[in-house]
Design a protein around this nucleic acid. Structure first.
Lengths: 130, 130
DNA sequence: TACTTATATAAACCATTGTTAATATAATAT
DNA sequence: ATATTATATTAACAATGGTTTATATAAGTA
């Protein structure tokens, strides 16, 4: 029936940003490219050979990662050298930790809070058990 | 032209698993549900109201999260109480750290390694600059 | 029994996206 | 200039997936 959201995370626009970034890295090829770039700068032909994918496909995925700001390019002649954008990687780490970090798990999880009132209507997160 | 992969991460089947999980959590609604469940067990009607989405949609996303093993259900009468699967959350944290953890960034990144031989063919990651 | 209530499932629709094949650009070498 | 090399771009296609509407299940209540 769609009322207004009552959870903190539900209203947080940061969640959209994080999910957008996660969507970019949730492709297995792109995840592998990122993982690979930790070892240093790479050109397209190396990604291509390293992941055993075609040149246009490598170029495409690198473009998506770049568009998302996760990597950056350095051009030299006909070569394009791609590397991680360290600030973006650090921001991603921070956001992931904030939303899904295992440190967030409470000691007594799940703290047995009930959910719905006897009448059946959903209660707000702040409302205690009746 | 697609040769065989030469990067470690490129051959690692764990990358497929992680990307699969990331795909599940990269939906903004599901990310918000997970984030919400850190505060404790919730029933469908609470998720529904908390995120301001329809009942079938809430049920659907919870099903996807459950299918992925990230959350678990406890049924009581007509109610379904969902909670985080703590082991899964911890595994996700570990995998994320292993693949994209900021700790992986080398001191001198990017260590200026060249990429392609003068002849233009890609070199393996272990092969040094000519 | 009949009537809610909470949740799950199914079908249909629409938008997005990964992939391939073909082509374009632009720098370098002959 | 011509050819080759590295990379980017485009169009087309197939597949996936989020959302809605409608319906089903199943437990409680009158």
């Amino acid at each position: 029936m769609a009322r207004k959201p009552i959870f903190k995370c539900a209203a947080d626009p940061e969640a959209d940003k994080l999910s957008e970034t996660l969507k970019v890295i949730s492709d297995s090829k792109r995840l592998r490219i990122l993982c690979t770039l930790f070892s240093g700068e790479k050109c397209v032909c190396e990604i291509e050979a390293g992941l055993a994918i075609s040149q246009p496909l490598a170029s495409h995925h690198l473009g998506v990662l770049r568009e998302a700001g996760l990597i950056k390019v350095r051009k030299e002649g006909t070569w394009s050298y791609y590397a991680l954008d360290l600030d973006a990687i650090r921001r991603l780490n921070a956001a992931f930790k904030e939303y899904l970090g295992a440190e967030r798990i409470p000691e007594d999880y799940p703290s047995n809070t009930t959910c719905c009132t006897p009448s059946g209507s959903a209660r707000g997160i702040e409302k205690a058990k009746t």
